[in-house]
């Protein structure tokens, strides 16, 4: 097995994984759903930097998955507050943090159909830090109002809820989410992208501070961990991603 040389140029995927690892913070258990190679990279990176903390559950992995009570255990775990961070996306995401994983147009006669809500209509309520992640930052995906609410960004006070969105990470920028005012705030713009470009490609209103910093690039040590320690681990679950981004080849 070989890994990328340290002098290789920083990729967008590495930048996003580093940003997400910082958002994860100091927690006990991070779970990652299906088809999420960048969040999985971030979770494994957070674990390396934390010397084995947090626990990381990659749902698609045989190795990084301790569940022995069937598919329900993840949700039972989350229901009790035993999962601190999860990742969700959406065919559409709106400015109030509502996400749509179902369809566009009338529900009975949709124009566009997505796969479905998966666990979102539950996990969005019970996982304290949900990080929204969408690599297509456009007016098609970041919309004024979603066509179907797979899960709402916020809930009325009497509805049991100890979780929800904390941030939205895209290929252009990082937004934080303010649950009290039900809106996103532009936190940083990735290197090579501009504040005006974010405005041009975002379909919802958000708070824009007077000065928006550039998203910090990962340190040399973070990059080394990602490329040399995390990437080979990742290859078990995401062989194509690990090969494309990190040049990791698993011998057949």
């Amino acid at each position: 097995m070989t890994a990328a040389p340290p002098e290789q140029k920083l990729s967008n995927e590495e930048l996003l994984a580093s940003v997400i690892a910082d958002l994860i913070g100091d927690v006990r258990h991070v779970a990652v759903g299906n088809a999420s190679p960048i969040p999985a990279t971030a979770a494994l990176l957070a674990r390396e930097r934390g010397g084995g903390k947090p626990y990381v559950s990659l749902l698609q992995s045989r190795k990084h998955n301790f569940f022995t009570d069937g598919g329900r255990e993840l949700f039972d775990c989350a229901g009790q507050g035993r999962i601190d961070v999860f990742f969700l996306s959406g065919g559409e995401i709106d400015g109030e943090g509502n996400i749509n994983l179902v369809s566009i147009g009338e529900y009975e006669h949709p124009k566009v159909r997505f796969p479905g809500s998966f666990g979102a209509a539950y996990l969005y309520y019970v996982v304290p830090k949900v990080i929204l992640f969408r690599t297509e930052h456009s007016r098609r995906t970041l919309v004024p109002k979603v066509s179907f609410v797979s899960a709402p960004g916020t809930s009325p006070e009497n509805v049991f809820r100890n979780g929800g969105p904390i941030a939205l990470v895209t290929n252009r920028c990082v937004f934080s989410f303010d649950q009290t005012h039900r809106r996103f705030r532009l936190e940083s713009v990735h290197p090579g992208h501009a504040v005006s470009e974010v405005a041009e490609h975002t379909g919802f209103a958000y708070v824009q501070p007077a000065a928006v910093p550039e998203t910090p690039s990962p340190s040399a040590e973070t990059l080394r961990l990602m490329r040399q320690v995390v990437a080979p681990e990742l290859a078990e679950v995401y062989p194509q991603f690990a090969a494309r981004i990190f040049g990791v080849r698993v011998p057949a």
Partner: peptide
């Protein structure tokens, strides 16, 4: 089950 309330799934 928790969750679901306020969603179009429900």
């Amino acid at each position: 089950l928790r969750g679901l309330i306020g969603s179009d799934v429900l």
